[in-house]
């Protein structure tokens, strides 16, 4: 492919970087995700995500980096009163062709050599073009200075490894880059390579069903490499060609064919009865 030859990730400048050895990726198994929200609170706690209050939530200005989308599912036009449900945790997809990066006038959001989409808060001037261009709607803008007024006690709950953001700055999921860097430093101090699955993101660590898998795609021993071979794998809105590093494993329902048969024949009988009437 032409673009693959020209892609920035193949440029010498990108490869001449120690971080290039690790290429981070994630997969989320929708079959085991129950939508319990543990990941959302864990992310809040780890990444100093601020609370904005009901009024600002109603203005669409909440700050959560990961959200649990809940879909109702119905077949055809019927059943809107009694749908099925499907949960899908959505965070920054860390697209390789990230739409947010190309529109930032000050290069505040960039691709890192290890394949994550990064925010550089110091550069951000708050144009919000990136949020506008993000098809997944995972970018959050600080409309106010949420941290300035935090009571002293609550400030003590903040994670010192993560920068708190000021007003006018865009933020989003970083795949817990602070944990990645910590593990890399530790591995370097111990004069070894990173072990497979050594880095865990906060959402992954909190997940009680291990639905979230994170790891180095360059390391064949990583669980995430195996997960990505799963035939249920798909990428969210793949038709946009954003090439997300986050994959989902589609949900499978193990329905009882006898119930479906009995209910559909009953519906047919109803239809016949209605037609007769």
């Amino acid at each position: 492919m032409v673009w693959e030859e020209n892609h920035p990730k193949d440029q010498p400048a990108m490869k001449d970087n120690p971080y290039y050895q690790n290429q981070w990726g994630m997969s989320i198994d929708l079959n085991t995700c129950t939508g319990c929200n543990a990941c959302v609170v864990a992310c809040t706690s780890e990444n100093n995500v601020q609370v904005v209050g009901k009024e600002e939530v109603s203005n669409g200005r909440h700050m959560y980096w990961i959200r649990n989308d809940r879909y109702y599912v119905t077949e055809g036009d019927e059943g809107a009163e009694d749908p099925e449900m499907l949960m899908q945790p959505v965070m920054c997809q860390h697209c390789e062709n990230a739409p947010c990066e190309s529109v930032c006038p000050v290069a505040a959001t960039l691709h890192s050599p290890d394949g994550t989409n990064q925010m550089i808060y110091n550069r951000c001037i708050g144009t919000r073009y990136c949020a506008n261009n993000c098809p997944y709607k995972v970018r959050r803008f600080n409309f106010f200075d949420w941290t300035k007024t935090l009571p002293t006690e609550v400030q003590m709950a903040q994670n010192p490894e993560v920068t708190v953001r000021t007003r006018g700055v865009m933020e989003k999921c970083s795949w817990c880059v602070q944990r990645i860097r910590q593990s890399q430093q530790q591995a370097d101090n111990e004069d070894r390579d990173l072990r497979p699955n050594e880095v865990e993101t906060a959402c992954q660590q909190a997940c009680p069903t291990d639905a979230i898998t994170f790891g180095d795609l360059n390391n064949p021993e990583s669980d995430v490499v195996e997960e990505k071979q799963n035939p249920r794998r798909y990428e969210l809105m793949a038709y946009l060609n954003t090439k997300p590093r986050l994959s989902y494993l589609g949900r499978v329902r193990n329905t009882n064919p006898r119930i479906e048969e009995a209910l559909s024949s009953e519906q047919d009988a109803d239809a016949v009865a209605a037609a007769d009437a």
């Binding site: 929708l30 939530v57 669409g60 909440h62 959560y64 959200r67 649990n68 989308d69 809940r70 879909y71 599912v73 499907l86 949960m87 899908q88 959505v90 949020a131 506008n132 993000c134 098809p135 997944y136 709607k137 035939p231 249920r232 794998r233 798909y234 969210l236 809105m237 989902y248 589609g250 949900r251 499978v252 329902r253 193990n254 329905t255 064919p257």
Partner: peptide
């Protein structure tokens, strides 16, 4: 929260119903 955070929804999750014996999955190598 998590309803219509922006101009568009993010598009649906994929799901498939398993019939006995055969799997009809949104499979894509």
């Amino acid at each position: 929260r998590s309803l219509g955070t922006g101009a568009t929804g993010t598009g649906p999750a994929r799901r498939s119903t398993r019939k006995t014996g055969t799997a009809s999955l949104p499979a894509r190598a």
